[in-house]
Design a protein around this nucleic acid. Structure first.
Length: 462
DNA sequence: TGAAATGTTGGGGCG
DNA sequence: ACGCCCCAACATTTC
């Protein structure tokens, strides 16, 4: 006589508003059992990196509080999807499991396999479109961003943003792990000191960021490129964990500007979408170059150089500022991401997968698709990628986008008193700063070495 | 969502 | 007055 409950399986959609999986669970009229499973063990799983775990800890805490306020709670379980979920369904006698669509190959495999023995229903919670909805006239996936984006813009139908429900009926919930026992927070050393002052994980924090950004959409087109000011939306970690839906973001900016800012911001949302679709169509995206010729690229191995890059000790100010911003805050400005990536791949000639792995571990906004697609974009091996010969000169980039030096001075205190003229190339100053290293590589040499390396594969690569 | 090399043009100094 | 050269400034090409 008891009504079988339904499981609401949260994954990367840690929110209560505009969440299609939650809506479906509520529409069933059954008691809802909200669950989050941390899967570190499925082979091939890209388990969250260190910075993402910090974020996840706080986001789960916020989600649980939000659920409690609505008369429910959150069940935490740890283990492989394919053992934990069947166990949970057996324990609760759940009649259905509602969850978000997965793009990650390992999660897709796991959920597809589970679907054969459990009543799993997937809903779109983290994208505007399913990858199968956006195809070229001939039915193939888009390989070029601009026509992809055009089709998205044309196809987008604003769907009402579903508000957070006032109440979520749940019977007694099954046993949950204690969040602290997952040890998602760093201890020794605690590299996340002060992060709570700069990041607010959780749905409320996401909405606050969105509101704070809305008046700045108009200026976005120019301001987004300047790392020394607050020109970007800072929504990326919230989107990565699904604390806000792309649908909500898209619609919330639509009336707030009429010029280029709005269009440019939306195209950034669509780059995220493009990346996810690429990962869906090309599951090897995180592991192998999309353009096969790049498999033969003569990358170097140089652990000391890699470590210097990771620590922000390359002797190139804008690169070091970016890498230190990443390490100390878990986030890096997008313009600077392109600069540090170009420097690693081209001037240092190190494999893009080294950069991908480091970003995965250190970014609070790490998403498998965007991370992989963006690194391949810089490396020239991806879809609609920047040509490999497009080598950023980090001095010129610094002078152009950090013209007053505020960004570099903020994150590289050794350079605080270098005069502006030499701030982005301190080795040229008559008396270079004493406590700052000389460049790890001569920029002209590194550039030429990269172009020469390209020639070894260029007959087969475009 | 490049940078550097190379080419072109035109003003001005100067014999 | 004229041709010559230099060299910004800008445009084009190449990687």
């Amino acid at each position: 006589m008891t009504t079988p409950p339904v499981v609401l399986w949260f994954r990367r959609d840690l929110r209560l508003s505009d969440n299609a999986a939650l809506s479906a669970a509520l529409a069933s009229g059954r008691p809802v059992i909200p669950v989050f499973i941390l899967d570190d063990v499925t082979p091939g799983a890209w388990a969250p990196g260190g910075a993402s775990r910090w974020w996840l800890h706080h986001s789960l805490q916020a989600l649980e509080a939000d659920l409690r306020k609505r008369g429910s709670g959150l069940v935490l379980r740890r283990g492989s999807y394919d053992s934990v979920l069947p166990q949970l369904v057996a324990e609760t006698g759940a009649g259905e499991v509602h969850t978000g669509e997965a793009m990650e190959p390992w999660a897709r495999r796991a959920i597809d396999a589970l679907s054969r023995r459990l009543p799993i229903r997937q809903h779109r919670t983290s994208l505007l479109f399913h990858p199968n909805e956006i195809r070229t006239g001939s039915g193939t996936p888009y390989g070029v961003f601009t026509p992809f984006a055009r089709t998205c813009e044309r196809s987008y139908m604003p769907t009402p943003m579903v508000p957070s429900p006032a109440r979520i009926a749940s019977l007694a919930l099954p046993a949950s792990d204690v969040l602290a026992s997952w040890k998602l927070l760093p201890t020794k050393p605690d590299w996340a000191v002060g992060w709570s002052a700069i990041h607010t994980p959780g749905e409320a924090g996401a909405l606050a960021r969105l509101q704070e950004f809305q008046p700045r959409v108009k200026a976005y087109d120019d301001a987004r490129n300047l790392p020394g000011i607050e020109g970007t939306s800072r929504l990326s970690p919230h989107l990565a964990w699904g604390e806000i839906s792309p649908n909500t973001v898209w619609q919330s900016v639509q009336h707030d500007g009429t010029g280029k800012g709005l269009a440019t911001f939306r195209s950034e949302l669509l780059w995220r979408e493009f990346s996810a679709h690429l990962l869906w169509h090309f599951p090897a995206l995180p592991d192998a170059p999309l353009k096969p010729a790049y498999a033969a690229f003569p990358w170097r191995q140089d652990d000391r150089a890699l470590r210097a890059w990771q620590r922000g000790e390359t002797g190139i100010p804008i690169v070091d500022a970016g890498m230190r911003q990443l390490w100390t805050t878990g986030w890096m400005h997008n313009r600077v991401r392109m600069i540090v990536a170009s420097f690693l791949i081209k001037h240092l000639l190190l494999p893009w997968r080294d950069g991908e792995a480091w970003f995965w571990d250190t970014l609070v906004d790490a998403e498998l698709a965007a991370n992989a697609a963006s690194w391949q974009w810089v490396a020239g091996s991806g879809a609609d990628a920047a040509p490999f010969f497009r080598v950023f000169n980090p001095v010129l980039q610094g002078e152009k986008f950090d013209a007053d030096g505020a960004y570099v001075r903020c994150y590289v205190p050794e350079l605080a008193h270098v005069e502006l003229k030499y701030l982005h190339s301190p080795w040229l100053a008559s008396s270079p700063p004493r406590h700052y290293p000389p460049p790890i590589v001569n920029l002209a040499f590194g550039r030429q070495r990269a172009l020469d390396a390209l020639k070894t594969i260029t007959k087969s690569a475009a």
